[in-house]
Nucleic acid binder design. Structure first.
Length: 875
RNA sequence: GGAGGCGUAGCUCAGCUGGUCAGAGCGCUUGCUUCACACGCAAGAGGUCCACGGUUCGAGCCCGUGCGUCUCCACCA
């Protein structure tokens, strides 16, 4: 059994090999099995051409922890992986690459472009997947899916047609957010607002037919939209402007007269109380325009240059036009004043170009009927958010959501399954291609737009399981259990999956949504490409190992909260891996050929009972933490157990036994193997590689730790009383060490200990520990000692004399004892105060009152001992 | 305008249902070539748990107000 391990753990020699071993064992794969309980996680599909960043690393670490843990608990655990086609992002990358070759989309045509896009996908599509494997992700790769693969595309068409037939998808002319750079519409959720410095231009609109030269003063932040004005509005209750309602004003610089209308939308106390109405380029103006039947004049081209409706400004970029137009207004005396003004400007979440609201014909999903049941599902608790506060955010959005613009003027994506007759204009919405017009027999052409990327990802939880077919997978694994994702895509994705699941499957897509925060840089900034402050997880893995990175991301990370990444944290995780490695090395070095299994010895010593009790408690608590999604807390406890309990104490305690050999050594080895290999199981979901490596080296049953059974609390290993007794010895050891350190006695200088205690047997049993761990040359245990000149160490259960007269400074010793006395008295006062409070005794739980009484007694005993010592010294 | 998070040791953060909750890691100080580990061992210093009120026998924890800070939603031209 003896196995030589390197002194320092080297993840590089372990990780790839271990991952291959798992894959060969087919441990990641799950098959539907009605006899077993499923546990399913759908991976949020990363962008197919993307690269792994810290956000993915965190997201996937959490998922892998959950799936590995449940798998070990014998669930039929499926972690479904896949990638997203990411329409805008991918398309713009391909376009960019083409631009470098001097090519445009238009030159290539739709087919040629798509060919390139697929080639791009093939080239970069595997990258993110192999990066996820480096993390140790135990996904079922056999089931890997892509949002644009055949099955997912089929699901998309199916859903589109169903929703259309129910009247939940419609086509209409609405104001949408237009990105002049991506040249497509984007949904409301895809617009990011940012406060920017702008200006308020006050413009004079002369009243038609006024002989006195009357005018209305309008303030605007976007003067160039004046070209599309078709009216100006005042509030119906605004006395200042009553007389102008119904009249017309001259639109400056344009030969156009536009009406003055009244509308509640116009607020009296904002700006001048007069607002220009540009129905084609402002969502509110659009509605006002609808109410008053104002014409809609679109003045922009797709790239936000001015179109033919802009007269002399045609062809200018919107900002060039703004400049020119303002100059003209000023020259012609229309410009009354310019005020600096801060306002929010919307921009495209992908390219950050300022969006231009624009009227156009787009496809929409009618949200209200879908949102209602989706809200209800969360209210009923059929889906829970962790932490709960994100439910509020979800409700707030769902309850105020506007219709979802799903058409995109892009080529990379699912083409909208609507077909139009070139001859008669008939439209058919159909899952399958329609070539001939059912009405006139003319040639049909498919809608040129594609769908919003999120339309297909909204179906991810069931489209990946084979829907719309009724597959065994779908029946077994849906609804899934846990969705793990960041709060940044609750609206984009989570909300849409929930209403899609309810609508198509009649059930929620998952029971729990575990929300995590962002991984920020050391200074707390968002990691971003533009800042260049992103940390590459692969580099971290290369330097410290995947386990170290995973441990870092899992530790101290509480749901929903952002965390900061720092190298120092990863280093300390790496150190932990090394600590574990060396503890295992120690155990392995001591094993012999007879140590072949993981069983417990027949007789247990007190320290065995102590460690088993601690271990058993750990099993219970860590499991409970995991059940409550307190992953960080669970791993913290496992970490503390391994380092502080197992390494710092138990291993040290076994050393004398191991050296002694014989039965007692054998028993110690059995306990070490038992505790270590089972603790490795607890740690495995967090640090899969190193735990597998060590587990394999130790005596073990089964092929792999990842398919071993998750430990359970064992009432037979609960030795509370013995454990409590044993801590008396530990306290004594700590107290002696403390005194020796204070007096600067080097460990090499041994001294005898005389232990005065009312519970001598436990100390008598533990003499070797005191010798080894408290630098004792010999130990005597008794009821009473008279060693007035000795150093005295007082614990709750013992008074220990260390005869080191030469080291004693009587004054100092007295001062120290008096300090201890004072602190002890303070404790007693504190507890007394509680117990003297009738309210406390009457209302606090009985058990707590008892505990306090016990504490008081202990403290009083301790005080007595201190006082004795003082008295002895003063003699 | 609305909603929410955060404020705990020098730094980064944990603290579950209010009662051994004053914690961890890093950093710092002092010892230690202890036969697994210096990526280590041992001992320590360091906190008005943002402030003020309230509830309670009892408050980092619950409620209110304020301050600081961050974020999301809305988008009044």
């Amino acid at each position: 059994m003896r196995k030589e391990l390197e002194k320092v753990y080297d993840p590089k020699q372990v990780e790839n090999r271990t991952y291959e071993f798992w894959q060969k064992g087919n441990y990641f794969h799950a098959e539907p099995d009605p006899k077993r309980k499923p546990y399913t996680i759908m991976m949020p599909p990363p962008n197919v051409t993307g690269q792994l960043h810290m956000g993915h690393a965190l997201d996937n670490t959490l998922q892998d922890i959950l799936i590995r843990w449940r798998r070990m608990q014998s669930y039929n655990a499926l972690w479904m992986p896949g990638t997203d086609h990411a329409s805008i992002a991918t398309e713009s990358k391909v376009v960019e690459a083409m631009r470098e070759e001097g090519l445009t989309k238009e030159q290539l045509g739709r087919e040629g472009f798509l060919k390139r896009a697929w080639a791009w996908k093939e080239q970069y599509g595997g990258r993110i997947v192999s990066q996820l494997k480096k993390m140790g992700s135990s996904c079922d790769w056999e089931r890997e899916r892509f949002t644009m693969d055949e099955g997912c595309s089929k699901a998309v068409n199916e859903v589109f047609v169903r929703l259309y037939k129910k009247g939940l998808i419609y086509k209409g002319e609405r104001i949408i957010n237009w990105c002049p750079h991506c040249k497509t519409s984007i949904s409301d959720a895809e617009v990011e607002y940012e406060e920017k410095d702008g200006a308020f231009w006050h413009i004079k609109y002369p009243v038609v037919g006024s002989e006195t030269g009357e005018y209305l003063e309008v303030a605007t932040t976007r003067p160039e939209t004046l070209l599309g004005d078709t009216g100006i509005a005042v509030n119906p209750n605004d006395e200042r402007y009553q007389k102008y309602i119904g009249k017309k004003v001259i639109l400056p610089l344009c030969d156009r007269e536009i009406p003055v209308i009244e509308d509640e939308y116009c607020e009296m106390d904002f700006g001048t109380g007069v607002v220009k109405i540009t129905p084609a380029h402002d969502p509110n103006d659009f509605e006002v325009g609808q109410r008053h039947n104002l014409p809609i004049i679109n003045v922009f081209n797709e790239d936000a240059t001015i179109n033919e409706n802009g007269g002399k400004y045609q062809g200018m970029d919107r900002y060039a036009c703004r400049k020119a137009l303002v100059a003209d207004l000023e020259a012609e005396g229309y410009l009354l004043k310019v005020e600096p003004y801060k306002h929010n400007v919307g921009s495209c979440y992908r390219c950050h170009t300022v969006i231009e609201p624009r009227v156009s014909l787009q496809w929409f999903v009618k949200m209200e009927p879908l949102a209602k049941p989706a809200v209800q599902a969360v209210r009923d608790g059929r889906t829970k958010f962790i932490p709960e506060r994100f439910e509020k955010i979800y409700f707030n959005w769902m309850e105020n959501v506007k219709d979802w613009c799903i058409s995109r003027q892009l080529w990379w994506g699912h083409r909208i399954p609507a077909y139009y007759c070139a001859d008669c204009g008939e439209m058919v919405v159909s899952k399958d291609p329609v070539a001939v017009c059912p009405k006139c027999g003319g040639k049909m052409e498919q809608d040129s737009d594609t769908l919003d990327t999120w339309f297909s990802s909204a179906l991810w939880p069931f489209s990946t399981l084979g829907w719309p077919e009724d597959t065994p997978e779908l029946r077994h694994f849906y609804p899934t259990d846990t969705l793990v994702t960041g709060y940044d895509i609750i609206f984009f994705w989570v909300a849409r999956m929930i209403f899609s699941g309810l609508e198509q499957m009649g059930d929620v897509p998952y029971h729990t949504v575990l929300i995590h925060g962002l991984v920020r840089d050391e200074q707390g900034r968002k990691m971003s490409k533009s800042l260049g402050n992103g940390i590459d997880p692969l580099k971290v893995i290369d330097e410290y190992g995947a386990d170290a990175l995973r441990l870092t991301l899992a530790t101290g990370n509480s749901p929903g909260n952002d965390m900061r990444y720092s190298d120092a944290k990863v280093r300390s995780s790496r150190n932990f891996a090394n600590k574990l490695w060396n503890a295992s090395r120690f155990i392995l070095m001591n094993l012999d050929d007879s140590d072949t299994d993981v069983s417990l010895p027949d007789t247990l010593t007190i320290e065995d009972k102590w460690i088993l009790t601690q271990y058993n408690q750990l099993v219970k608590e860590a499991t409970e933490n995991l059940e409550k999604f307190e992953l960080g807390m669970a791993v913290q406890k496992i970490y503390d157990f391994i380092w502080d309990v197992l390494c710092d104490w138990y291993i040290e305690l076994t050393k004398s036994r191991l050296q002694a050999g014989g039965d007692t050594s054998k028993a110690a080895r059995q306990i070490l193997v038992y505790v270590m290999s089972n603790t490795l199981k607890l740690l495995h979901p967090f640090m899969p590689f190193i735990t597998e490596e060590i587990w394999q080296a130790l005596p073990h049953d089964g092929e792999s730790i990842m398919i071993s059974r998750w430990p359970e609390f064992d009432p037979d290993l609960d030795f509370k009383e013995e454990a409590r007794q044993f801590t008396k010895v530990m306290d004594a050891i700590k107290a002696v060490r403390n005194r020796r350190a204070e007096m600067n006695v080097p460990p090499s200088k041994k001294a005898s200990l005389h232990i005065e205690t009312s519970s001598p047997s436990v100390f008598e049993n533990c003499v070797p520990f005191l010798e080894r761990l408290a630098s004792a040359s010999n130990v005597e245990v008794g009821k009473e000692f008279h060693l007035p000149g000795a150093v005295q160490v007082i614990t709750d259960s013992a008074k220990i004399y260390i005869p080191m007269e030469e080291l004693i400074d009587k004054e100092k010793e007295l001062a120290r004892l008096n300090k201890e006395k004072a602190s002890c008295e303070k404790d007693i006062g504190f507890i007394r105060k509680k117990l003297d409070n009738p309210g406390f005794v009457a209302k606090a739980p009985v058990q707590l009152v008892e505990t306090e009484r016990g504490r008081l007694a202990t403290a009083q005993e301790r005080l007595a001992k201190i006082e004795e010592s003082i008295a002895a010294l003063e003699k």
